[in-house]
């Protein structure tokens, strides 16, 4: 669906947006965030694409996770998800609250405690800031105003939910996946943006316009 140039252009845009989001996360956690370049795939429901997804998905997708979800748009529409391993989510909250000053303290914490209302509240706000930053930047690129739902936070065993990616109403799923670390605190995180076919086409059309502008200049 995407040629090499389109994929490169879209990845570069997303790279910038994720970079901006990482800067906000750094402000929230008071930690330097080190990012990897995002992997970007547009997957259909085909067996072949399913195999690609299985190959590229982060290993923590086979475990318990905490997911913040932001739904957006009516024209250009879909949902964005910020996913963390469940056992790392509580120390993210501790970092936000300034309750964890050293990696030693964080790493000795038991990550299997029940999530409290405060944990959910903090994770919801992380998702709100990060996902708004990325999705809002896409809205700015497309020059459309997106309406958002309230961000939702859920904790679950990811394999039980990921089938929805392939069996939902959206025929295509744009998957952006990147991992990041925070100074001495290693964790994985992933961002998934799920778009319907029309929205994927709208995004590609805009990317084509940008590429055409580049050629003309």
């Amino acid at each position: 669906m995407l040629n090499k140039l389109q994929k490169e252009a879209l990845r570069e845009h997303m790279n910038i947006y994720i970079g901006q989001a990482a800067s906000l996360l750094s402000d929230m956690l008071q930690k330097k965030i080190i990012l990897t370049t995002p992997e970007l795939f547009i997957l259909s429901r085909s067996e072949e694409d399913r195999a690609v997804y299985e190959e590229m998905k982060p290993s923590f997708f086979n475990s318990h996770v905490v997911v913040s979800t932001l739904r957006f748009g009516t024209g250009f529409s879909g949902n964005a998800q910020l996913i963390f391993p469940r056992d790392k989510s509580q120390w993210l909250v501790k970092l936000i609250l300034g309750e964890a000053d050293s990696s030693e303290m964080v790493l000795t914490e038991n990550g299997d405690e029940e999530l409290t209302d405060t944990d959910f509240d903090a994770i919801r706000e992380i998702g709100n800031v990060i996902l708004n930053s990325i999705v809002g930047a896409m809205g700015n690129l497309l020059e459309v105003k997106l309406d958002y739902s309230l961000p939702e936070v859920q904790a679950f065993y990811y394999p039980e939910q990921e089938e929805a990616l392939f069996k939902g109403t959206d025929s295509h799923v744009l998957v952006i996946s990147n991992t990041f670390s925070m100074e001495e605190f290693e964790t994985d995180g992933a961002i998934l943006i799920v778009l319907g076919l029309e929205s994927v086409m709208e995004l590609i059309e805009k990317i084509n316009e940008i590429l055409l502008d580049l050629e003309e200049n």
Partner: peptide, 24 residues
């Protein structure tokens, strides 16, 4: 607000606010 959309910022500024600060 966490909303970074230009159109949202313009709409809000038109409604007369002192300033618009992006979260966090």
């Amino acid at each position: 607000s966490a909303d970074v959309q230009r159109m949202v910022k313009e709409e809000v500024l038109d409604l007369g606010v002192l300033t618009f600060i992006h979260k966090p």
